[in-house]
Nucleic acid binder design. Structure first.
Lengths: 387, 387
DNA sequence: TTCGTTTGTTAACTTAACTTACTAACTTCT
DNA sequence: AGAAGTTAGTAAGTTAAGTTAACAAACGAA
């Protein structure tokens, strides 16, 4: 029974049990046996092993049922069995954190990205992690692995960043670089995918099978979770909503906001909104300021921002038409102006898409990137433990 | 070892072996053992069972390898172990066929849809199948099951057609109706999903992990295969490309071609193309005729058809931006004018989408619907056999 | 205190892998 | 032609990981 193809049967069952305990705390051996349709002895041996290894903790006995009988032993998942490192590399700052297996942040720190280049960056990351480990007295053997997010198209498997304009990287072997400083398994993906994973694991997308995370900032990008799995596409470029065209006539003459920018981000991205209004008003306006003016009913702002929001709305409606997701989560810098964006976008979705779809603003804070990176690690890592 | 959760381990391995034999004919016990990393004895016992049951046939011995040694016994999959019924219900005609497990059509016949309504339709289908079974001398016990395609939004699980305008159905329990006449497992899905499954199984999409099948006819619809699995969305309405908006300004004023029609099918669907040109020329023109005039360089046709094709191109480019598929297959009535459509569409995709994507015309014939329906049956059926 | 109930364990059995050791069949080298 | 070397497939025995059946432990209530 050693092998049914790379994965032993026992391991499967152990994983199922551990997963069940996680999702149904507190639980008992008998309950597990019933729910997973395994026999009681099987569950007992598996639980014994998991308790031995420290994945599961027996906590006092629970309540016996109405009709009497022996009280069950409560079983709880032990989220401190191991710790995870999450790294969120952004254009301006780098965030590093250590979480437990539940995604609870135990320690977190950031440093400016620009000060360091190439190898010095990774030494700095390692240094931060070492400090945090010391602080929390977590030994290397307790570390499960490293997950990292990068703002650019990334090949999960080779770990090479095809292109990350914000960092000036091209064909950059980030996984290798991280692996050089960390003696743990390393997983890398792009920042929007990480955002989607984070929302699915710990954010508003918990228990949703199909969701889209859209980050509207300088550019517009999105991560797609279908059937509970991140969908990356054939060339790791699924979710490039920034390239969506929402106006045939306009598309013929549009100018990319930056080289390599797509249509949508050129008409609805943060930079474009700012510059468009700046041109109209004759002074430099930031995107936030533009929204502020829009809220105040400034006519120029209404004139310039209105269409930008409509384009975004159409792009999202198109997403709904194609993928029929359960939930769309908006994140990124512009999600601060969700109060302005939401009515326009959801009106357009209702008007044009065949099905409705809830659209919400992300509830995660600054640490979302780090937690998403940890979600990536736990999803991809082929260990006993799995989200 | 009875249960690791609904599915025994043995069954998994049997299925893997059978699948391997199918895809790698002819093969041998030793090769299977190597490729699936199972031991030789294990493979021998599994193969013995499969031969006993008739799934696998031993054909003469093969060639021994370069360095000598005993000649292996060649193993072949037996596609005649069972037969499948495929039903393709269209607005104008109904097609029924019987195929073997490879999807080879053994018998096929059609009849007009309108002549029959409600229960009479299903009696007719059953009658046709009975005739074909007799002709081929296939007993009920050899029938694997029934797959069926319907032109409308269909809930795979309950088997209820939400709405099929072409047939005048609403909340129609088609699975139940078919189950009433057939004593075999029945699976139903909508026609574009079936088209996608057919292309993936026997068409141009073989061995592709991610593909889109787009049917351009009266309306525009699509089926999505991601990671080798049909993606249906949260409300069974994924792939509704007909609702995609490709022009913000135009969308504000467009009139649906029919009630419930989306933007894209209203500007690029077959009916709209015909009527648009009819209006311009002052006489009734069919879509085919419109393409004919376009090929001949007729200025009115260029003026009306050009934008329609561009809208379709943008919709497909948006698809590529979002899903990054490996292949897009065009089908439906208008794919006859692929020579006209392809240059426009692929030019637009190259211009606006972040990655390239091959776009081809379906190579399947009239029987595609029946074969796709069989593909659905084999995908969904939880038997030993699986595509 | 005793009885019914529920939890969890122990013991014996079953299944389906595995390993090791074989036979069978074939090629090639001498 | 016969020996040596190679590869295919089988037989016998072992091991892992389940199963069922029976029982001990713990508890509530009559």
């Amino acid at each position: 029974m050693q092998n049914f193809n790379e994965e032993t049967n026992k391991n499967r069952n152990s994983r199922q049990v551990l997963q069940y305990v996680q999702n149904s705390e507190p639980t008992t051996r008998t309950e597990i046996a019933r729910k997973l349709s395994l026999s009681k002895p099987t569950v007992s041996t598996i639980v014994a092993e998991l308790v031995e290894e420290g994945w599961i903790i027996e906590t006092g006995s629970g309540e016996s049922s109405a009709s009497g009988g022996r009280k069950p032993v409560n079983l709880m998942f032990n989220p401190k069995k191991a710790y995870c490192i999450g790294v969120d590399i952004g254009g301006t700052k780098v965030a590093v954190g250590i979480t437990d297996l539940r995604g609870k942040l135990e320690s977190y720190r950031t440093f400016p990205a620009q000060e360091h280049q190439d190898d010095s960056l990774f030494k700095m990351i390692k240094h931060m992690v070492d400090e945090m480990q010391e602080e929390l007295s977590i030994s290397d053997s307790q570390i499960f692995g490293v997950g990292a997010g990068v703002p650019g198209v990334t090949d999960m498997e080779t770990g090479i960043v095809e292109e990350a304009p914000a960092l000036g990287w091209k064909e950059f072997p980030i996984k290798e670089k991280l692996q050089n400083v960390f003696p743990f398994p390393v997983y890398v993906d792009n920042d929007v995918n990480i955002g989607a994973l984070g929302e699915h694991w710990r954010g508003l997308g918990r228990n949703k099978r199909n969701l889209i995370f859209i980050a509207v900032g300088t550019g517009v990008g999105s991560g797609i979770i279908l059937n509970g799995q991140l969908f990356r596409g054939s060339h790791y470029s699924a979710g490039e909503i920034g390239y969506m065209v929402t106006d045939r006539s306009l598309a013929k003459s549009y100018e990319p906001a930056y080289a390599g920018y797509g249509f949508l981000e050129s008409v609805s991205g943060g930079t474009s909104i700012g510059t468009a209004l700046s041109g109209r008003l004759g002074r430099r306006v930031s995107a936030e300021e533009a929204f502020e003016l829009y809220r105040a009913g400034n006519p120029e702002a209404l004139e310039k921002l209105g269409p930008a929001l409509e384009h975004l709305g159409i792009a999202i409606a198109n997403y709904v038409s194609i993928l029929d997701p359960e939930l769309i989560i908006l994140g990124g810098g512009l999600s601060q102006s969700f109060d302005v964006i939401h009515p326009v976008v959801s009106g357009i979705v209702r008007q044009y898409a065949p099905k409705e779809c809830e659209i919400v603003k992300t509830a995660s804070g600054k640490e979302a990137g780090v937690i998403g990176a940890v979600a990536l690690l736990l999803k991809e890592h082929e260990g006993l433990y799995n989200i």
